Amino acid sequence: MKLTKTLIALALAGAAFGAQAHRAWMVPSSSLVEAKEPWVTVDAAISEGLFDIDHVPLKLDGIFVLAPDGARVPLENASTGRLRSTFDVKMAKPGTYKIALVSQNVTASWKVNGEVKRWRGSEEAFAKEVPANADELKTTRTNARLETFVSANSTDEAVFKPTGTGLELVPVTHPNDMRAGEKATWRFLLDGKPAANLGFSLVPGGVRYRGTLGEIRQNTDAKGEITFTIPAAGMYMVNASWPAAAPAVAGQAPQMPARRVTYAATVEVLPQ
């Protein structure tokens, strides 16, 4: 359980897309459902290969579904197996639904008689379990958001109303209305304000079959916006994090910022 929680925290904290990185993701069976009684099934896992079921399931605790009218929708037929979790979402009302997992954690390190102690947990647990006067206490507070979006019979933008906390996607081009070969524009906000010069990564699934990452990397402009051309249809993973990682210094441990904010989402690009 401790290992799984650590992997979730690392994945949601925006682990780099290296060969050995583990990532958390949620993939819906379809992003746009046109049916009389629309449903979607969602796979959720933490994996080494993007969208591959090869490591551990993503725990369903904390995942919520937001309907177009702002109401919470329950997870139906939820199940957690050895390598993945699954659940269904009944979309009783037309429009766009947000499926999200939002976490806020504290990572701390300090010394006791010269030995480094490390801790990770919630803000409430931090206040109870970590000595306030600990020797050489260092902390990093992480706000992480993992999302995907599905629409029933039509799209709307009500679920994209920002909360004003952390990194958030407020799309100009709706993520359920993207086509291969067409340009899309998205806006990122940091604590409700434009996230200027934010690094953005878009990686298509199927890496194990391509042999190359196929990553699109750009930075947002002064308005927090980014425009990109989508090369091919398929499922994609969006990643962004703030602040940018500090340059590595030989012989020194990586410098962690006092606050780290990350965003990740799965979106589907349809054929033309």
Rank of each mutant, 00 (worst) to 15 (best):
D52A: 13
M256G: 14
A16S: 13
L202D: 02
P131L: 08
V170K: 08
V42A: 06
A78M: 06
H174A: 06
A265Q: 05
F17R: 04
G205V: 07
T185H: 05
V130L: 09
A152S: 03
R259M: 10
P175I: 01
P28A: 10
K36V: 07
P271R: 09
P175E: 01
A248S: 15
S103P: 02
Q252L: 15
T4L: 15
A35H: 00
T229A: 12
K36A: 13
P254A: 13
G121W: 02
S154L: 10
A15C: 09
K59A: 11
E168R: 00
T140G: 09
G114V: 07
A9I: 00
N133E: 13
S29T: 07
E147M: 00
V170R: 08
H174W: 04
A158N: 03
K36F: 03
T266A: 12
G205K: 03
V269Q: 04
W110D: 03
T165L: 11
Y97P: 03
A245T: 14
G251P: 04
E123I: 11
L101R: 10
F51E: 01
S109F: 08
R120I: 09
Q252R: 14
G62L: 09
N239P: 06
G81W: 10
G49W: 14
A71D: 11
L7N: 03
N239L: 14
S241Y: 15
A19H: 09
R72L: 11
I216E: 07
V267R: 04
A233H: 05
P271C: 08
T155N: 06
S103I: 09
N176L: 04
Y97W: 06
L7R: 07
R208Q: 14
L213T: 10
V106T: 07
D135R: 10
A44H: 02
K36H: 01
R217V: 14
V65F: 07
D221P: 11
E76W: 07
L60P: 06
S151M: 02
D52H: 07
N133T: 11
P254K: 12
S47W: 01
A100T: 12
A246T: 12
H174V: 04
D43A: 02
V130I: 09
P194Q: 13
Q272L: 14
A265F: 08
W242I: 13
W242H: 15
T173P: 01
A246M: 14
N105L: 15
T80A: 13
P171T: 01
E147W: 01
A244W: 12
E129N: 13
I46Q: 01
